[in-house]
Design a binder for these strands. Structure first.
Length: 475
RNA sequence: GGUGGUAUAGCCAAGUGGUAAGGCAUGGGUCUGCAAAACCUUGAUCGUCGGUUCGAAUCCGAUUACCACCUCCA
């Protein structure tokens, strides 16, 4: 039984979907005015891992993740780059794919754009006004936050405390437009320097932040969704505001489970990596030097609610771990060479079942990847132990082990088959060299044998001698 | 100031009442022509103080440190 930590109640709760076998999941995506940084990647990886696990245990997951492609920052960035907003956002939407694909982040089922839903957004705002929860003020439209009784619950903040913060922060201009400092914009009148705007009953303008997620989540997943996800920093104001507008609009609970991922931190003080602090590393840059699967493993093996400290050491650890897991895969795979075809050994079959069971127990506990990794590490050891047995192994057992091992790692977004560099290596020349070296070894000409090994190594081919012969792989 | 979170071996980290999983790194060992890989083995009493209990890392109280949210940010 899967249990998830619901940020709304601050408790682990049994996970029950609205429709049997199907999960509806909405994850707030990035505002596309720059390359994504490690914090964005962390969020994408966290929810991709959750999605993959849900699929692993048999759910169909309808996964919607948006691009927010209209917003003050976009207008500003477009102006700075002297291009239109559309050109800017198109560029970074594409960059998002280029950066996330190598990290094995599956594409969302639907990836809606705010700018393609402005008509629906306007209708949504009209409804809020008609219901008395929003009001027009000098070309803007604001939501009456205080009128929504549960306002602030997700962030565990009282309306009064929020108001103190808002009052200190807002300038007179903003305050004069609002009935109450905590009210938030659902529609904003046209900005002076924006090249983009839409006509509305309140004049030319653009959607406020938050509203696009409400509109698109409801449109693609329904009035109530199973899981709503995003970074911890979205709890307030983004998700808080989404809840208020959505629940006023539909009269129903917006999401049953709220999942928030922790931050990526940097430095000795474990400071949050963020755009505003300027202490970020973009995925675009990092992947020039780093194996994407190392980054994926580093992030996927930290439980999604915990912070990830981004350090050289952490990356090095992940690299070592990935190498170890890959070697285990290769080692057992190599034993197919002398495997025998007969019915599977039931001891091994049961062993596999136990690994799967423990893996699920771990992940069922709010996606406890640390414990899941313990299972995978035990499995890797088991693979190695079998691989070093002198008796011939049974083909079916090897295939069963490798298959389940591969699936578990795939839940974490690690493609171990790809990492092992099998399949795509063609080998006649290498095999010839290995045979030559084998002859040299038989005649105890170790100088020649070592020379051949060194030559291949220079080409990135690593040879390893075993009782069953010499195995090799690319570096 | 309000709210939430974190503190376990050199590092990462699991563990919510019964005498501390796992991984990395380190030391030792086995295997090996050598190498590589692998396997075995090696270490902490759980921020601090106090309390409850037969018994606490785990419950209660206090305290310290760090982080985050209360403005845009995943």
């Amino acid at each position: 039984m899967l249990r998830v930590f619901n940020a709304m109640t601050h408790q682990k709760e049994e996970f029950k979907t609205i429709k049997p076998g199907i999960v509806s999941m909405y994850v707030c995506g990035p505002t596309v005015y720059n390359y994504i940084h490690l914090g964005n990647a962390r969020s994408a990886i966290a929810f991709d891992t959750i999605r993959r696990y849900l699929e692993y245990i048999g759910y169909q997951v309808n996964y919607v993740s948006n691009f927010t492609d209209i917003d003050d920052k976009i207008i500003k960035a477009a102006k700075a780059a002297k291009v239109s907003e559309q050109v800017l956002t198109a560029k970074f939407e594409q960059a998002f794919d280029e950066d996330t694909a190598p990290l094995n982040i599956k594409k969302a089922t639907v990836r809606p754009l705010a700018t393609e839903h402005v008509t629906e957004i306007i209708d949504f705002v009209k409804t809020l006004i008609n219901k008395g929860y929003a009001y027009e003020s000098m070309g803007d439209v604001y939501f009456r936050a205080r009128k929504f009784p549960e306002y602030g619950h997700l962030a565990h903040q009282s309306v009064d405390d929020l108001e103190i913060g808002a009052s200190e922060r807002l300038d007179d201009g903003a305050l004069s437009k609002k009935e109450d400092p905590i009210d938030f914009a659902v529609w904003k009148g046209v900005a002076n320097d924006a090249s983009i705007s839409w006509q509305s009953p309140w004049g030319a303008g653009r959607p406020g932040w938050h509203i696009e997620c409400s509109v698109m989540a409801i449109k693609y997943l329904g009035d109530t969704i199973d899981i709503h996800g995003g970074g911890q920093d979205l709890a307030f104001p983004h998700h808080t505001n989404e809840i208020a507008q959505s629940e006023v609009y539909t009269g129903k609970t917006f999401a049953n489970y709220w999942l928030h991922n922790g931050f990526v931190t940097v430095g000795d003080q474990q400071e949050k990596m963020s755009k505003s602090l300027g202490n970020f590393v973009t995925v675009h840059d990092l992947l020039k030097d780093v194996n994407p699967q190392v980054l994926r493993l580093m992030m996927a093996t930290t439980q999604y609610r915990r912070p990830i400290s981004y350090t050289e050491t952490a990356m090095q650890d992940a690299e070592n771990t990935l190498k170890h897991l890959t070697t285990a895969y290769r080692n057992l795979y190599f034993r197919l060479i002398d495997a025998k075809t007969e019915s599977a050994n039931t001891v091994i079959v049961e062993k596999i079942a136990t690994f799967i069971k423990h893996f699920k127990i771990a992940m069922d506990d709010d996606f406890n990847v640390a414990n899941a990794m313990t299972v995978i590490a035990e499995m890797a050891t088991y693979l190695n132990v079998l691989a070093s047995q002198t008796d011939r192994l049974i083909k079916e057992n090897i295939e069963g082990l490798l298959s389940e091992y591969t699936k578990m790692l795939m839940v974490l977004g690690i493609d171990i088959e790809k990492e092992s560099n099998f399949k795509q290596t063609s080998d006649e020349q290498v095999e010839a060299k290995i045979n030559e070296r084998a002859s040299a070894k038989i005649s105890k000409d170790y100088q020649l044998a070592d020379k051949i090994r060194m030559e291949l190594q220079a080409q990135g081919i690593i040879l390893e001698d075993t009782p069953q012969g010499t195995r090799w792989h690319k570096e």
